[in-house]
Design a protein around this nucleic acid. Sequence first.
DNA 1: TTCATCTGTAATTATTTTTATTACAGTACA
DNA 2: TGTACTGTAATAAAAATAATTACAGATGAA
Lengths: 136, 136
Amino acid sequence: MNNGRFAIALHILTLLDKANGELLSSEYLAGSININPVLVRKELINLRNHGFVQSKEGKNGGSLLAISSNDITLGEVYKSVRQASFLGHQKNTPNPKCPVGKDINEHLNSLYNDTELILIEQLSKQSLADFSKRFK
Amino acid sequence: MNNGRFAIALHILTLLDKANGELLSSEYLAGSININPVLVRKELINLRNHGFVQSKEGKNGGSLLAISSNDITLGEVYKSVRQASFLGHQKNTPNPKCPVGKDINEHLNSLYNDTELILIEQLSKQSLADFSKRFK
DNA sequence: TTCATCTGTAATTATTTTTATTACAGTACA
DNA sequence: TGTACTGTAATAAAAATAATTACAGATGAA
């Protein structure tokens, strides 16, 4: 995985699972993760778009899980935060005159895709509930 | 994976495999990858330390594979370039007063380690020779 | 023996990516 | 109608990557 967003997303979701339906504010979530509340709110947008959480605006607002933590796998969480590809999208632009350079991004991408599938499969063996259970 | 170094390392190794024992200069390698030669030389240090390549200094110097591309798996290449852990080492320092924050890095690390093992296993199914074969 | 062409490596700068901060409009409760 | 939230944009700061410059040392060849 590629980015710290996975850790943040999973942290948020774990806290929400533990909260058991109680609304948690982005300020509170940020306090546990120890990052800026705006980052949390941005990640919540994404989690909301994926149907994992619901938020309520206004006073006494906050967020909660929209579905059971049994129905969220870590693979889905991973997919929700990954951008483009796996090992970081291809950022090199190799020399097109070189027979290796010309085709390497294509071959790397197919390698990454294959590997990422295995990764997601592995992560999908575990639900958010399983992960959350580890915390007393 | 975590970093563009995997792509660079694999690109270098593929070029060296194609060169079939002929010495390739860092300048030439950098030209195909389209990155700075110093970066290539730094990556070569690492590949050398792992026994994958050999270099020769001085005029007409350069690098070549130190062992057969059949004996280098992509898993080993991955391991040679990864730093610390998988999804990027834990950089958050969550709130230790929070029961989730207190333990999350530990649980994330064990999740990452388990997942990375699967990843390496998957990559190890393919040798450098297999990868290199894909280029005409 | 000296020039040219390499590697090895350090130091510095530039670029890109990530994260934090500030600010404020809109919503909802009391 | 004030207070405590979310939503969101804009900007700044920090961290991570990559490029550049520079030069010493190795090696081969004229």
